[in-house]
């Protein structure tokens, strides 16, 4: 009885495919069908190429390090081993850097969304005197910038060198994200805010208890932009953190590992050797660090991509 159902199911699917195939051959000329097949193959290759380089890194990072040096690991680990990850998680500098990355992402996103959000909200009010001037003040920064050196000098004279705030303040306002938010705020029905104002609510109250909840999708999108920006940043720590080594976020450490400039395998590899015969190569640590620093973003991106897409479109349409 049960088998019968399964068989029926497959027959149904087979018939569906068959009829789809017939429709396809009827509707399309030979040239179009060849195009379809080639197109499908090319797109599958694109999908594969997008994923594979990282996949290989993951496979290698889970392989026994000395064995991995022989190469030839393409899809799955040959000799499964967690030693590289164990070393990474036992290395105090890497663990600290992971928490620095988490801290700057959390604090930076929070500060940025509040500062940028308030700015966007005030600028979305047509009644605001000088609105045009302030908008222009914001937009102009997208076209002019002092460049790397003057910015560096300003930031160091503000006392932000070796200061955690250097990760947060310079990117507190993002004009692009401000435009995304403003566009959204402008489309919130005015009547809602007006009735709240009649009840005596102030602008801050309205912003935090009416506007923010109503704009949840836009806020989520922009928060994600900020969070990804914070998580990926490496250059600010690279130039603004001089003596406070502990303040390096993971990307900066990773950059120095890959560059071979600072932490040459040495001190890290030493940590992994305590087990006696087990050896960890600098390469294995590099790969494991790449994976560890990427996983948080990889875990969320498939679920949030539609928000990203929306945010990008709002911004570009407004441009």
């Amino acid at each position: 009885m049960k088998e019968n159902i399964i068989v029926k199911f497959f027959v149904k699917i087979k018939n569906k495919i068959a009829s789809a195939y017939v429709r396809w051959t009827k509707k399309n000329t030979l040239g179009e069908r060849i195009f379809d097949v080639v197109n499908l193959i090319l797109l599958l290759i694109v999908g594969f190429v997008s994923l594979y380089p990282f996949w290989q890194i993951v496979a290698e990072s889970f392989n026994e390090p000395l064995d991995a040096m022989k190469g030839g690991i393409y899809f799955f680990p040959r000799e499964f081993s967690l030693i590289a990850y164990k070393t990474v998680f036992e290395n105090s500098q890497l663990v600290t850097s992971f928490f620095i990355s988490v801290a700057r992402t959390a604090a930076g996103t929070l500060v940025s969304i509040i500062v940028t959000g308030l700015l966007a909200y005030a600028l979305s009010k047509p009644a605001l005197r000088g609105r045009k001037f302030f908008s222009l003040l914001c937009l102009a920064t997208m076209f002019f910038s002092g460049g790397m050196i003057p910015t560096y000098l300003v930031i160091s004279q503000l006392g932000l060198v070796d200061n955690f705030l250097v990760f947060i303040l310079p990117c507190a306002v993002n004009v692009w994200n401000m435009i995304v938010l403003r566009t959204f705020f402008e489309n919130i029905p005015v009547s809602l805010e007006e009735s709240a104002r009649l009840d005596g609510a102030g602008w801050y109250r309205i912003f935090f208890s009416i506007v923010l909840p109503l704009s949840a999708p836009a806020i989520a999108t922009v928060c994600l932009f900020f969070a990804v920006g914070q998580w990926s940043a490496w250059f600010d720590a690279y130039i603004y953190v001089l003596d406070a080594d502990w303040m390096y976020p993971m990307q900066t450490i990773l950059m120095r590992i890959i560059n071979g400039s600072a932490i040459s395998g040495g001190d890290i590899v030493g940590g992994g050797n305590t087990g006696g015969t087990i050896t960890v190569t600098a390469d294995a640590i590099k790969l494991a660090t790449i994976v560890v620093s990427t996983v948080p973003i990889l875990c969320v991106y498939p679920f949030v991509q539609k928000y990203f897409v929306k945010g990008m479109l709002v911004g570009s349409v407004k441009e």
Binding site: T141, S145, G146, I149, P150, V154, V173
Partner: peptide
């Protein structure tokens, strides 16, 4: 913006 975008312009 003034601190991090306009001061550097002056710089």
């Amino acid at each position: 913006l003034i601190l991090f975008s306009y001061l550097p312009l002056y710089g």
